[in-house]
Amino acid sequence: MTGNVLIEELGPRGRRRVRVGTGLATVAAVLVLFWMYGRLDGNGQLEAVRWTDLFDSATLRFLGEGLIATIRAAVTAGVVATVVGFAFALMRLSKSRPVRTLAVGWVELFRALPLLLMIFGVFFIDTSIARGRGGDALLGTFWSVVVALVLYNSAVLSEIFRAGVRSLDSGQSEAAKAVGMTYWQMMFVVVLPQAVRRMVPAIVAQMATLTKDVSLGFVIGYEEFVRRGAGTANFGDTEVTNFQAYVSIGIVYFILVWAMAGLAKRLEQRQSRALKVAAADRDPDQDLDLGAGDTLGAGPA
C-alpha cells in the first residue's frame, strides 16, 4: 500500500476494482508501448546498426571526452559556487546594512534570470572585450559556462545556507553568547558547523541540478556531453541519427543525475532520523522540520 492519506483498507468490492483497474492499465500501457515500437521501427529508428555505431571505439572516446568535460565544468562550478554562496550567506547575515543589501541584491538578481541568458551574457561580454583589445578571449567557453553557473548557483546556495542557519534553534546562539563568545566565534564554532551539516542533502541536490545545467553550455559551443552527442549524429559514415544520439545522451545523463539525487535523498533520510533521535532525547514533544525540501530529483531550473 502506498500509504497516502487517500487510501484506506479496501473491502471486497474495492479490491475487485483495483484488480480490474490493474488489468486495464496494464493493457493500455502495453498498447502504448507497441504503438511506439511500431512507429519507431517503421521509421527504421530501431535498426541495430543505428545503435551499435554508438559503441564504435572512436565514437565512445568522443562521447567520453564530452562527459568528462561536463563533469569538469560541474565540479569546478560546484566548488566555486559553494564558496561564493557561503560568502554571500555570511554577508546576508551580517549586521551592516550596506553589506546585507549588496548580498540581497546579488541573490535576488541572479536567481531571477534565466541561466541560458547569463551564459550568453558572460560569453558575449567576454568576446566583446577581447575584440575591443584585439586579443584572445579572456574566459573562453569553459570559463564562460563556469562563471554563469557560479553566478546562478551561488545565489541559490546562499539561500540554502541561510535556511540552514535559520533552522537552528535560537538556544544555540544564545548559549554561545552566554559563554562569552564573540559574533565570529559564535558563527564559526557553534552556528555554521551545524547549519552546513544540516544543509548537506540540499546542497547535493543542487549539485545534481547544476550538473543538468552544464548541458546549456551547448549554446556557446562548449564541448560538453550533449554537444558531443549532437556531433555524433549524422557525422561521417555513421548510421546514428539525432534520435539515437539524444536518447543515449539522455539515458547516461539520467543515470548520473538520478544517482546524485538518490544520494541527496538518502542523506536527508539519515539526517532526519538522526535529528528526530536527538530531538526525542531532548524534548519528546518537539517536532523538527528540516525545511530542506523534497529531494527526490534535481531542481527545476
Binding site: 500500500m1 502506498t2 497516502n4 487517500l6 487510501i7 479496501l10 474495492g14 483495483v18 483497474g21 490493474t22 492499465a25 496494464t26 500501457a29 545534481a208 543538468k212 545545467d213 548541458s215 546549456l216 551547448f218 550533449v226 549532437a230 539525432n242 534520435f243 539524444y246 536518447v247 545522451i249 539522455g250 545523463y253 539520467f254 543525475v257 538520478w258 539525487a261 527526490l296 530529483g297 534535481a298
Partner: peptide
C-alpha cells in the same frame, strides 16, 4: 496516489525520467 499498482509505477517512472534529465535533452528528444 491511486491504489492501482501499474499506474503508480508508470507515474513514478515519468516523474523520475523528466526530473533527472536536462531540459535541453528533453527538448531535443
Amino acid at each position: 496516489v491511486s491504489p492501482i499498482p501499474p499506474l503508480v509505477r508508470v507515474a513514478g517512472w515519468f516523474v523520475a525520467a523528466f526530473r533527472n534529465t536536462p531540459l535541453l535533452v528533453v527538448l531535443f528528444v
